[in-house]
């Protein structure tokens, strides 16, 4: 197994009285793609959102346990959430570009970090768009509104926006679930390229997608982590019956 990037220890999360995640322990390897699978409402997205503390926004969420990124507990009292989120980027299920130009969408992150120099911004925008494999499609219309792009392009733009602040970890919450097959395959290709530099954790409902893009797979069911291992093993030879049932489509 590769080096460990994120180590989750006894993570439990309640929404009010409701238990959403129960005692999750998991080690996510560096610069690999880890897929989170499982039926709807079983805690995958909630778990993903604990990794950049987006659950902080929900007043009723209570968390215990530890999430260590590079050996540092992100739930420690003196952790700066703003800095954490710069290191752990997130791509959402529904593409959510700002109603600004393509350029300004990507420049948003650097700008809030105080980078205002034209040349530097230009460069960041270009590299980010190139890494997100959308540069060739938009380079002639960087000043146009991002809302004029197609759904698939918008999602890649959102990935470029995430890359603009140079994170080490990218969380993806069903990034292709609202896209057509062609756009989906572009996103999957992109994930494949990105894992050379980034640790990627992706939630997906699509079994084939998980099998195609990920190196490791974690199966969640009813707020518990049922099984975790190499994707190949999970899909061909799962050790737990529930996993096998889910993957073969017998429930869920």
């Amino acid at each position: 197994m590769k080096e460990i990037k994120i180590k989750i220890k006894d993570l439990t999360l309640h929404y009010g009285q409701k238990l959403a995640l129960n005692n999750i322990c998991l080690e996510i390897p560096d610069r690999r793609v880890t897929a989170l699978i499982g039926p709807s409402g079983c805690g995958k997205s909630t778990f993903l959102r604990t990794l950049n503390r987006m659950n902080d926004l929900i007043p009723s969420a209570r968390i215990s346990g530890e999430v260590l990124i590079d050996e540092l507990n992100i739930y420690d009292r003196n952790i700066d959430v703003v800095n954490l989120r710069k290191r752990v980027g997130m791509v959402f299920q529904k593409s959510n570009p700002f109603s600004k130009s393509i350029y300004e969408n990507v420049a948003y992150g650097p700008r809030i970090n105080g980078i205002n120099e034209r040349k530097v911004l230009d460069e960041i925008v270009e590299t980010s768009l190139k890494r997100a494999a959308i540069w060739n499609e938009v380079k002639d219309r960087l000043r146009d509104s991002a809302l004029g792009l197609s759904g698939g392009q918008q999602q890649r733009l959102c990935i470029a926006r995430t890359l603009s602040v140079n994170p080490d970890v990218i969380l993806m919450d069903e990034p292709a679930s609202a896209l057509d097959p062609l756009s989906t395959s572009k996103i999957e290709e992109l994930i494949h390229q990105l894992k050379e530099q980034y640790t990627i954790v992706i939630v997906t409902h699509n079994m084939q997608q998980a099998a195609r893009v990920s190196d490791y797979t974690a199966f969640f069911y009813l707020g518990e982590l049922i099984e975790f291992g190499k994707t190949k093993t999970i899909f061909t030879n799962p050790t737990i019956k529930q996993t096998e049932d889910y993957i073969t489509g017998r429930f869920g």
Partner: peptide
């Protein structure tokens, strides 16, 4: 979603 996008980029 837009607020989350901004916060997820490390905006205060």
């Amino acid at each position: 979603e837009l607020r989350e996008a901004s916060l997820a980029l490390g905006a205060t």
